[in-house]
């Protein structure tokens, strides 16, 4: 074993022991219910690289002032040094007393980023210069005095189903970047990633004999009540381009009346001969189509049948069932 490898192994061993001894220091903290109040027992603080450089600089200034017997320079150095030390309290106070109140999650199919919104609240004073990190994803945050601060994280997703919320690191180097205070958060949160939608089979969703599938009307109104977020699989012609310009994401027209009578039957068994994951992808695509068409639909899965029904809630129920299929 080379010396470098031995050193690495030693560092890893120390880190392992630290994780056992100081669960709050590392990400191994247990999952905890909301709200999470940040307090001194879970806030850690170390100088940053720049902080160490700053300290070296102060030392040089001190030596210079002492060597030249220059008391004014010494006083200035002491002042700067004391302010630098005080900034340690600033970094600590950026976190102390902050509370994570709620986590709201959006919905996203696997492969697309899932938006998670964290709501923090402050009491008595503002908190600034905060960063929430989940892995490589960062979000900056400032909370007003007695206010609420929200930060959005777009978490990458890989596969459908339940996804654990990665350990969140809330950190700050406020005000001078000399010290970094951090705290690990493991809030209890359920993130469900929907199935990826994919056109697998050319089999169209079978329209119910009772209703004819109506073409979407050329409704160009910008009435946002008739609009919803773009979902993967939405046909491009349904995108309301004008309205989308006013939003961060694409908006899709939902024309309620266009398909009042249509009732689709989206059947798992209709897709025999294809492997399970691709069937799920195809069903997810059909569900999106049906929702986009404002149709009534029922989703037939091996164990359960959902619907017939229509609307956002039904869509979510179907997506959830698809996401959680074994």
């Amino acid at each position: 074993m080379s010396a470098a490898a031995r050193l690495r192994a030693g560092v890893a061993a120390v880190a392992r022991r630290a994780e056992i001894r100081l669960p709050a220091l590392t990400r191994q903290r247990r999952v905890e219910p909301l709200p999470i109040l940040l307090h001194r027992r879970r806030i850690y603080i170390v100088p940053t690289g720049f902080g160490l450089l700053f300290a070296t600089m102060l030392l040089v200034m001190l030596l210079g002032a002492l060597n030249y017997n220059n008391n004014a320079a010494l006083l200035l150095t002491c002042l700067l040094g004391a302010a630098a030390v005080n900034s340690m309290y600033g970094a600590f106070r950026a976190l102390n007393g902050l509370r994570l109140d709620a986590i709201a999650t959006g919905s996203a199919p696997a492969g697309r980023p899932l938006r998670v919104t964290l709501s923090f609240s402050a009491a008595g004073r503002p908190h600034r210069g905060l960063i929430v990190s989940a892995g490589d994803i960062d979000g900056a945050l400032a909370v007003d005095r007695d206010g609420i601060g929200r930060v959005n994280l777009a978490l990458p997703t890989v596969r459908r189903g339940w996804m654990p919320l990665p350990p969140l690191k809330l950190h700050s180097s406020w005000p001078f970047g000399l010290f970094r205070a951090w705290s690990w958060l493991r809030p209890q949160a359920a993130l469900l990633v929907y199935a990826r939608a994919e056109i697998v089979a050319a089999i169209p969703p079978a329209p119910d004999p009772a209703g004819a599938r109506a073409a979407p009307a050329g409704d160009d109104s910008d009435d946002s009540a008739g609009l919803r977020e773009y979902l993967a699989g939405d046909p491009p012609r349904r995108i309301a381009w004008k309205a989308s310009a006013h939003h961060d994401d694409l908006r899709v027209r939902q024309s309620e009346r266009a398909s009042d009578d249509a009732e689709w039957r989206l059947d798992w068994h209709a897709l025999h001969g294809i492997d399970a994951e691709r069937r799920i992808a195809c069903l997810a695509h059909w569900v999106n189509e049906a929702q986009a068409a404002r149709a009534r639909w029922s989703l037939v899965l091996p164990e359960v049948t959902l619907g017939p029904d229509r609307g956002e809630t039904h869509w979510h129920a179907c997506q959830r069932a698809l996401a959680l299929l074994p």
Binding site: L75, C78, L79, L80, G81, A82, A83, V85, N86, S87, G90, P126, R128, G129, L130, I131, A140, L141, A142, D144, S172, S173, W174, P175, F176, G177
Partner: peptide, 30 residues
């Protein structure tokens, strides 16, 4: 301070007041 992210809504004031406060608080130790 201006290099820090998210200084808050009243950043223009805070960029000065935060260092001024820390310097004033540093006087006894200095």
């Amino acid at each position: 301070t201006a290099l820090q992210p998210a200084p808050g809504a009243d950043a223009r004031r805070v960029l000065w007041s935060a260092p001024a406060l820390l310097l004033a608080a540093a006087l006894p130790a200095a």
